[in-house]
């Protein structure tokens, strides 16, 4: 009975993590796009993005801890910490580990953002995209429910949401959306040492 609980907890938390992560990525894109309506003030978008990402950390932690403490999985701490360090479904599980560690880096850099350069923070934050792809691959590759209809439906929704938002950002909301023209000025204002 005990092991079943852990097993269900791992799978449940895993599924929640995927949904939360996908939502967080979409909210991140919407934040950049300054999304807001009359009933959804703009400050809500990045605030929700931040809060849900912290919630996701908690859920992912439950997912990982239940997975490695479950005696039936034979997964040790190594599997949770070293990417591709487990013997069980090495590749797909490893993607999950890698994804989780990248997520920690993204969150850690966001917490110390005032002390990082704008470029450093942005570069690490952009790893959210490959991080998400790895998380999706992990859940489809290792997930025991992967073949179930409802899991597939959830995966499709998550993928559709994130790819749709990303495509929109790249194609329609790219470059200099506000029209400030900073890049143009930087090209015109150079001097030279003599």
């Amino acid at each position: 009975m005990n092991d079943q609980v852990l097993w269900y907890a791992t799978r449940g938390a895993g599924m929640m993590s995927l949904i939360l992560l996908s939502t967080v990525v979409v909210l991140g894109i919407l934040s950049h796009a300054r999304f807001g309506t009359r009933s959804w003030p703009r400050f809500v978008t990045p605030a929700l993005h931040r809060n849900l990402s912290l919630l996701a950390v908690v859920i992912v932690t439950i997912h990982v801890v239940t997975a490695i403490t479950d005696p039936f999985t034979h997964l040790g701490v190594v599997a949770a910490v070293v990417p591709f360090g487990s013997y069980y479904r090495t590749f797909w599980l490893g993607l999950g580990t890698l994804s989780g560690e990248l997520a920690l880096a993204v969150i850690a850099t966001s917490l110390v953002r005032p002390w990082l350069g704008r470029f450093t923070w942005k570069a690490i934050h952009f790893s959210s995209y490959p991080l998400w792809i790895m998380a999706v691959a992990h859940s489809l590759g290792t997930g025991s429910d992967a073949s179930a209809m409802w899991m597939e439906a959830i995966a499709v929704l998550c993928v559709a949401g994130v790819t749709g938002a990303t495509a929109w950002r790249v194609l329609i909301f790219a470059g200099d959306p506000v029209g400030l023209g900073r890049g143009q000025a930087r090209r015109n204002f150079g001097g030279t040492a003599q």
């Binding site: 703009r42 400050f43 506000v178 400030l180």
Partner: peptide, 8 residues
């Protein structure tokens, strides 16, 4: 960058 969250 004129996000405007501060004014909200």
């Amino acid at each position: 960058d004129g996000h405007g969250l501060c004014a909200e």
